[in-house]
Design a protein around this nucleic acid. Sequence first.
DNA 1: ATTGACAGTGAACAGATGTTCACTGTATAT
DNA 2: ATATACAGTGAACATCTGTTCACTGTCAAT
Lengths: 189, 189
Amino acid sequence: MKLDDAIKKLRRFYRFEKRLPTYEEMSELFGFSSKNASFKLIAKLIEAGILEKGDKGKLLPKNLFAIPHLGTIKAGYPMPAFEAHHDNIDLFRYLYDVQGDIYFLTVSGDSMIDALIGEGDKIIVDPSRTPKNGDIVAAIVDNEWTVKYYYKRNGAVELVPANKNYPVIYPRESLEIGGVIISVIRKYH
Amino acid sequence: MKLDDAIKKLRRFYRFEKRLPTYEEMSELFGFSSKNASFKLIAKLIEAGILEKGDKGKLLPKNLFAIPHLGTIKAGYPMPAFEAHHDNIDLFRYLYDVQGDIYFLTVSGDSMIDALIGEGDKIIVDPSRTPKNGDIVAAIVDNEWTVKYYYKRNGAVELVPANKNYPVIYPRESLEIGGVIISVIRKYH
DNA sequence: ATTGACAGTGAACAGATGTTCACTGTATAT
DNA sequence: ATATACAGTGAACATCTGTTCACTGTCAAT
């Protein structure tokens, strides 16, 4: 059993079960008839830095889901040299480093197009954060939701769209901030 | 112990340990001195659909990380009515439904700005997918990396930038497709 | 041919884990 | 006051789990 194959099988298992298999389950997964074979295989994965043992000796997926980050790619003219500096990004940690309760919204419309937020994009909103000038916020103005840049000048809040075809909103009646946009996620099909 | 507090504590534990705690660990986590108190609490979370028991009776985080999806927000004029249809999106499944090996790239430059991909954005590349017309690809042209729209007309490949200030690339010497962009992730700080 | 490293087998065992049962205190409603 | 539901305690136990040990076969190097 090659390490690469083992890694893929562990990933698949984890994706479905959201946990690592026990050594007995690994034996089934890897096609061993002895738990010990799995035990030895895992020892190698630990040595390779893919897995690790936590506080209480429990197996943890240290780098099992770290997607290789191959570097920076220039989206202008082709990049002179593509240095493959191998960071690894753990998507889970990358996006989930928020303490409080966050939520998703799906964007429709084009008023934030100049901020590179378009139709169908999912935005993650952190309702616990207080908006600073220039933050993008989900706001409830006069009982209606909208996504805009947030600016506070002389005590008055302006909600500025990232599209010249739309007007700046100066909330009159009520303004409630749904939260600050902390992330944008787009998925192509 | 309120269910909401328990959920938050479980999330925190899972974020660090990448697994659910045992009943004994839960007792410590929740401040119980009896495992059974945790057992009963978890039973409620299972009934509430937050957790579930898998094939072999193991505890799984069914919806523990499902971020509430509050609906569609119009980024044009404020939305007339904001129907709170409570989908839940599991970020992990949402972004990780790829079998093969994927990798990240960080974008620099503005040649894909009209495709809403800008400086600093992370793009996820699937090297196993064959590009179709209109897909955004990471390509290696004459030994240099670039991100462009992919088009094949009359057997000739065109790499089209999403920015009028840049020229269309007609690969002469070599063209290698690094992969198809399947996702864009932006994070604000 | 001999050696050694390596991949896997099979059995054994201490300790951890999920689950059940009977019990206690405490708040709330009747 | 009385009953009732509920949150938590404490102990018990069968089973599962990680780990160790001794062993077998196989391949490559000497």
